[in-house]
Deep mutational scan, measured.
Amino acid sequence: MEVRTIKVFTTVDNINLHTQVVDMSMTYGQQFGPTYLDGADVTKIKPHNSHEGKTFYVLPNDDTLRVEAFEYYHTTDPSFLGRYMSALNHTKKWKYPQVNGLTSIKWADNNCYLATALLTLQQIELKFNPPALQDAYYRARAGEAANFCALILAYCNKTVGELGDVRETMSYLFQHANLDSCKRVLNVVCKTCGQQQTTLKGVEAVMYMGTLSYEQFKKGVQIPCTCGKQATKYLVQQESPFVMMSAPPAQYELKHGTFTCASEYTGNYQCGHYKHITSKETLYCIDGALLTKSSEYKGPITDVFYKENSYTTTIK
């Protein structure tokens, strides 16, 4: 009895394709271990004539594949690729409408935090270190965002349907971005203890939790000093293409032309909904596939993004 075979390709990165001759009487799992086709788990399936010449994702289970996976995804987590594939199996079914010149995501599976993050990423200057993220990001900007969303979920250790947080998501993504040249110098002034300067680099240099107003941050924000008295913390120097200011959701007025974009969060910790506000020729609110415009805006804002380049204080 002759062994019926077909020729397929296996890959971990969709760049390096490895030619395989597979036995049609055995499952993919018996031949390769966990195997995925377009995100779908085909591990328990036997090869079919229609699979001839198709590319299958496999887990990096030998040295060659491990090197290829690390170079593309910059992670050695053995569960990463499987999590990416199972997320992709959902995100490829989502709709990605162009809204006001940006790629958004039609609401499904509690994905409003991903839509808000995706919209924000198209408006701030950011370059990702893992080629996987950078490639998928370019495709997302062009309207094909399924891979990018699935990668975000995998890097953030999230599953489809789980509630997510924009600030946490951005923080994970910033860790995989090139923020080497970003720098922030802060000064804390206390009447009792004097003053202390701190220099922050990388992710810490672009994120701040405690106030939404970048102007206020430049002037000074009140913080408790270690001595128990009130101290003032203010920005001395900022070198970065953008800054992200966050605070627990509270009524906040966004003035046209003073910011790049913002995240609105309605609801409580267990259950809520994100919308995205962007400042173009007027203010726009993007909620999944829905767009509304207004000249002014007041609502429960939790993150505001500002364009920056270089700032030095005039406070002496």
Rank of each mutant, 00 (worst) to 15 (best):
E2C: 13
V3F: 12
V3S: 13
T5S: 11
I6N: 03
K7Y: 09
V8G: 05
V8D: 09
V8T: 10
V8N: 06
F9T: 09
F9G: 08
T10D: 14
T10L: 13
V12H: 07
V12T: 09
N14R: 09
L17P: 00
L17V: 10
L17M: 15
T19F: 10
T19N: 11
T19S: 12
V22S: 11
D23H: 12
D23P: 09
M24A: 15
S25I: 08
M26L: 14
Y28L: 06
Y28H: 08
G29Y: 09
Q31S: 13
F32D: 10
L37I: 12
D38C: 12
G39N: 09
D41C: 10
D41K: 08
V42R: 06
T43L: 04
K44H: 14
K46E: 12
P47D: 09
H48N: 12
H48P: 12
E52M: 10
E52S: 13
G53T: 11
T55G: 05
T55H: 12
F56I: 08
Y57M: 13
Y57A: 07
Y57Q: 06
V58P: 07
P60K: 07
P60L: 09
D62C: 12
D63N: 11
T64H: 10
T64A: 13
R66A: 13
A69L: 12
A69C: 12
F70R: 09
Y72A: 12
H74M: 09
T75A: 09
T75R: 06
P78A: 11
P78M: 08
S79D: 15
S79I: 08
S79E: 15
F80S: 02
F80T: 05
R83T: 02
R83Q: 08
Y84E: 09
A87D: 00
L88W: 09
N89D: 12
N89V: 14
H90F: 11
T91W: 11
W94V: 05
W94D: 05
K95D: 15
K95C: 13
K95P: 07
Y96A: 02
V99H: 12
N100H: 08
G101R: 09
T103K: 04
T103Y: 10
I105S: 08
I105D: 09
K106C: 11
W107N: 02
A108M: 02
D109W: 05
D109G: 01
N110I: 07
N111A: 00
N111S: 08
C112S: 09
L114Y: 05
A117Y: 01
L118C: 07
L119K: 02
T120F: 05
T120D: 04
L121V: 11
L126G: 07
L126M: 03
F128T: 04
N129M: 08
N129E: 10
A132M: 00
A132V: 06
L133R: 01
Q134A: 11
Q134C: 09
D135G: 08
A136E: 14
Y138D: 14
A140G: 07
A140V: 13
A142R: 14
A142H: 15
A142V: 13
A145Y: 02
A145I: 01
A146M: 07
N147Y: 11
F148V: 07
F148Q: 02
A150S: 06
L151R: 05
L151F: 06
I152W: 00
Y155N: 02
Y155P: 03
N157F: 06
N157R: 07
K158W: 01
K158A: 09
K158H: 01
E162P: 00
E162Q: 12
G164F: 04
G164V: 10
V166A: 06
R167W: 07
E168M: 12
T169E: 07
S171N: 12
L173F: 09
Q175E: 08
H176I: 05
A177W: 02
N178M: 07
N178A: 13
L179H: 01
D180R: 02
C182Y: 09
C182A: 09
C182M: 03
R184P: 02
V185C: 06
L186P: 03
N187S: 12
V188S: 04
V188W: 06
V188M: 08
V189C: 15
K191R: 10
T192V: 11
C193K: 15
G194A: 06
G194M: 07
Q196R: 13
Q197N: 08
Q197V: 09
T198N: 10
T199V: 09
T199R: 08
L200M: 13
L200R: 05
L200T: 09
G202P: 02
G202T: 01
E204Q: 14
A205R: 05
A205Q: 02
V206R: 02
Y208F: 15
Y208Q: 04
Y208W: 03
G210L: 02
T211Q: 08
S213M: 04
Y214D: 07
Q216L: 08
K218T: 05
K219T: 12
G220N: 02
G220Y: 02
V221H: 05
I223G: 15
I223Y: 10
C225Y: 02
T226E: 13
T226M: 11
T226Q: 14
C227Y: 04
K229L: 11
K229E: 10
Q230W: 13
T232D: 03
K233L: 15
L235N: 02
L235S: 03
Q237R: 12
Q237N: 09
Q237E: 11
Q237F: 12
Q238A: 02
Q238W: 05
E239F: 08
S240Y: 00
P241N: 07
F242H: 01
F242N: 03
F242D: 03
M244S: 01
M245K: 01
S246L: 05
S246H: 05
A247L: 03
A247K: 09
P248S: 07
P249I: 02
Q251C: 10
E253M: 11
L254K: 02
L254A: 05
T258Y: 08
F259S: 02
S263W: 09
S263N: 12
S263M: 02
E264L: 00
Y265A: 01
T266A: 07
G267T: 00
G267F: 04
N268Y: 06
Y269L: 13
Y269M: 08
C271F: 11
Y274M: 06
Y274H: 00
K275A: 09
K275H: 08
T278I: 10
S279Y: 01
E281P: 02
T282C: 14
Y284S: 05
C285F: 02
D287Q: 00
L290Q: 14
T292Y: 06
K293C: 12
K293M: 08
K293Y: 07
K293T: 12
K293D: 13
S294H: 15
S294A: 13
Y297E: 04
P300N: 12
I301F: 00
T302W: 00
V304T: 07
F305Q: 03
Y306M: 01
Y306I: 02
Y311T: 08
T312E: 09
T313Y: 14
T313G: 09
K316D: 15
